Amino acid sequence: MDFADRGTLADNIDEIGDRREEIAKQISSGLVYLQGMDFVHRKIRTSNILLTRNFDAKIAGFGSDDMDCDERWMAPELRSDSPQYSFYSDIFALGMVMRKMGKGSEDYMRWMVRCLDEEPKKRPLECPIVTTEDVDPAPMIDSTNSGRLQALKSMAHKNGDVANYIGAMYRAGSKVPIDEEEALKWFLIAANLGNARAQNTMGVHYHDRGDCVAAEGWYLKAAKQGYQEAWSNFGDLLFTQDRFVEAAEWYHMAAAVNDAHAQYSLGKMYFDVWLNDTLALEWFNKAAVQGYVHAEYMMGYMYQHGRGTRPDDEKAEEWYLKAIGKGHVSAERSLEKMRHDRRAWVQIRESEWDMTSMEDDEGNLDPTKILLSFKNFSLGPEEYFLHAMEESMKNAKER
Rank of each mutant, 00 (worst) to 15 (best):
M37R: 15
M37S: 03
M37G: 05
M37C: 13
D38Q: 13
D38E: 15
D38M: 13
D38W: 08
D38F: 12
F39D: 06
F39L: 15
F39G: 08
F39E: 14
F39S: 09
F39P: 07
V40E: 06
V40C: 07
V40S: 03
V40R: 05
H41M: 08
H41A: 09
H41F: 09
R42Q: 14
R42H: 12
R42F: 05
K43Y: 03
K43C: 11
K43W: 01
K43E: 09
R45C: 09
T46G: 02
T46C: 04
S47E: 12
N48M: 02
N48Y: 01
N48P: 01
I49Y: 00
I49L: 05
I49N: 00
I49K: 01
I49E: 00
I49T: 02
L50M: 12
L51H: 05
L51C: 05
L51K: 04
L51A: 10
L51M: 10
T52R: 06
T52G: 10
T52S: 14
T52E: 03
T52W: 03
R53E: 15
R53H: 13
R53D: 14
R53A: 14
R53G: 04
R53N: 15
R53Q: 15
R53S: 15
R53L: 13
N54K: 13
N54L: 09
N54Q: 14
N54D: 15
F55D: 01
F55H: 07
F55M: 08
F55C: 01
F55G: 00
D56R: 07
D56T: 12
D56M: 05
D56L: 06
D56A: 07
A57I: 04
A57G: 04
A57V: 02
A57M: 02
K58C: 00
K58H: 02
K58Q: 03
I59C: 04
I59A: 06
A60I: 02
A60Y: 08
G61D: 02
G61H: 01
G61P: 07
G61F: 03
F62D: 08
F62H: 01
G63P: 02
G63W: 00
G63E: 09
G63F: 01
G63H: 02
S64H: 04
S64I: 07
D65I: 12
D65E: 14
D65W: 01
D65K: 12
D65H: 09
D66S: 11
D66E: 14
D66L: 10
M67N: 12
M67K: 10
M67W: 11
M67A: 11
D68G: 10
D68K: 09
C69G: 10
C69F: 11
C69W: 10
C69M: 14
C69R: 14
C69Q: 13
D70F: 04
D70C: 08
D70E: 08
D70K: 01
D70P: 03
D70S: 10
D70I: 04
